[in-house]
């Protein structure tokens, strides 16, 4: 039988502070189908960011089972994880995490650079990607500090999209934005989901989570409850 797109069984993430074990994730199991729009919600310190890092292949769980599209992530090498992040995953962060000294276009290009694409191809894709998220062309050469918060987040989304990933992880993507630009960003995510991309949104705001199809509540490193949102 074919495994679900994302399958996590009894995942633990334990940090060691000297001798003391500090579990951040205590046995989370979940399944996510391809094309789903999931919100992971929980108070700060609940482990939701750690869970996103694990599901996004930035970090490996201490123990448990985690398959991404039938690939055993616990057995994957560091280089393999980098390749997966590059090829199949896009990240959008609360603080945008743009490279400060690079223009919007260069920022968007970066994942393409690591994928070994030619300069011409990189620029073509970066432009396409930026236009898709609605950044005006005259801003392509601007550096992040010349852009507003909403524009920066658009650049970040364009960057996440450039290698045409299957999954997009967004960690509090509206946290640093005013309500209006936050809504615009969320609408872009909804649009991306409609195009068939799997979206995993991490937030502590109920209002933001409501854009998703399914909300997973995290508390103290465990799944507290799940709810389905009727669109």
């Amino acid at each position: 039988m074919k495994k679900p797109f994302i399958q996590a069984n009894d995942i633990w993430k334990i940090y060691y502070m000297g001798e003391v074990e500090v579990p951040a994730i205590r046995g989370i199991s979940l399944e996510i189908k391809k094309g789903e729009f999931i919100a992971i919600i929980g108070p700060s310190g609940s482990g939701k960011s750690t869970l996103m890092h694990i599901l996004g292949c930035l970090d490996k769980p201490t123990k448990g089972i985690f398959y991404l599209d039938e690939e055993d992530i616990l057995k994957a090498s560091e280089n393999r994880l980098a390749a997966i992040r590059n090829d199949r995953i896009g990240f959008v962060f609360q603080q945008f995490n743009l490279l400060a000294r690079r223009s919007a276009l260069e920022n968007v290009e970066t994942p393409c650079l690591y994928a070994g694409k030619s300069r011409k191809e990189r620029i073509r894709r970066a432009r396409e990607s930026l236009l898709k998220v609605g950044l005006e062309e005259k801003r392509f050469s601007h550096h992040p500090n010349q852009l507003s918060g909403g524009q920066r987040q658009r650049v970040a989304i364009a960057r996440a999209l450039i290698n045409d990933p299957d999954i997009i992880f967004a960690d509090e993507p509206t946290g640093a934005l005013d309500t209006r630009s936050g809504d615009e960003i969320l609408e872009i995510f909804q649009q991306l989901n409609k195009e068939g991309r799997t979206l995993i949104l991490v937030t502590h705001e109920r209002y933001v989570a409501q854009y998703a199809e399914r909300i997973i509540h995290i508390k103290d490193g465990r799944i507290d409850s799940e709810e389905l949102i009727a669109q």
Partner: peptide
């Protein structure tokens, strides 16, 4: 450090 983190999140390998 943060730049390195970003680059790694975007798929940079150790080698890169």
């Amino acid at each position: 450090t943060r730049e390195i983190g970003i680059r790694k999140a975007l798929g940079a390998k150790r080698k890169d």
